[in-house]
């Protein structure tokens, strides 16, 4: 089989076309938002939001609602709750996440295990099932991604200044507390969009790994974002192809490819610094 045929072949199926669009969107979005996750050291928060949203998904399933609704409510509530805990500073952040959000995840697993007719498709959200993305899911994914993208562009300077120097940003008239909350909500939306494709367990990797790889070989946030977006989309689309041909779990294949890219970037970055 020629390469071009190998690349085109999966598109014979509608569900594969949808999967590729979803992978592209999720890869792009996670890797760009992930740059803020990496420079602001929010990866643990991302993991916490993802895990907590599972309880929302299970409750939505029990109530025969769309999973997006349950996941969105739980993820945004979690994100705002984390922001509140950070601002108040009574409980350390890692403790709050370790206790509350793994607790919410456990609630989700508990509720799922109580279901009479054991729901296989709920497990899809744990590990992702990009091949099961429906047309409605896809529309919502692209729409939410567009909202996040617009917010990132409009708030670019606020996010940049708040990320580097929140105190001076505040004296410069930037509503830093609001910006922090908005970033957490954008992070929550990004995670929701990604759940069906890569799953709760692996979404944190897609948020961190492409951005961390890009950080090794770039020196400014804008270029880091562009490179991260390139790595993220390459891994999402490439990982989907790989999973198609080796018949493996798509989410895991995507994340493994990203992990490989990270180590490659680590080596390249070390070489670049030696050369400089």
């Amino acid at each position: 089989m020629r390469l071009i045929d190998a690349l085109i072949a999966p598109f014979a199926y509608d569900f594969m076309v949808r999967a590729f669009i979803a992978a592209l969107t999720v890869g792009l979005l996670c890797s760009v938002v992930g740059c803020y996750v990496v420079v602001r050291k929010l990866s643990f928060i991302g993991d916490g939001i993802a895990h907590a949203s599972f309880a929302g998904i299970v409750v939505a399933y029990l109530r025969h609602m769309d999973y997006y609704v349950g996941a969105a409510i739980m993820a945004v509530a979690t994100a705002l709750g984390i922001g509140f805990v950070v601002r108040r500073g009574n409980v350390s952040l890692d403790t709050a996440i370790g206790v509350l959000f793994t607790g919410a995840f456990a609630l989700g697993v508990f509720l799922m295990s109580q279901l009479k007719n054991y729901a296989v498709d709920l497990q899809d959200y744990l590990f992702g099932n990009i091949l099961g993305v429906s047309q409605l899911d896809l529309t919502l994914t692209v729409a939410l991604a567009a909202v996040v993208a617009v917010a990132l562009i409009v708030l670019w300077r606020d996010l940049l200044y708040t990320s580097f120097d929140p105190v001076v940003a505040q004296t410069s008239g930037i509503p830093t507390a609001m910006i922090d909350y908005i970033l957490l909500v954008l992070l929550a939306l990004t995670i929701i969009v990604s759940l069906e494709s890569v799953g709760i367990i692996l979404v944190a990797a897609l948020l961190v790994t492409p951005a961390a790889a890009a950080a090794q070989i770039t020196r400014r946030l804008p270029t880091m974002m562009v490179v991260s977006a390139g790595i993220g989309t390459f891994c999402a689309v490439g990982g989907l192809y790989l999973s198609y041909y080796v018949n493996a779990a798509s989410g895991a294949t995507i994340v493994l490819l990203a992990t490989f890219c990270f180590f490659a970037a680590l080596g390249a970055g070390a070489r670049m610094r030696r050369a400089a």
């Binding site: 420079v39 940049l160 200044y161 001076v168 410069s172 020196r219 946030l221 880091m224």
Partner: peptide, 12 residues
């Protein structure tokens, strides 16, 4: 360690 150049910081 924030990814920025001196000019980026001053531009803020």
């Amino acid at each position: 360690h924030f990814p920025a150049t001196v000019r980026d910081i001053v531009s803020m």
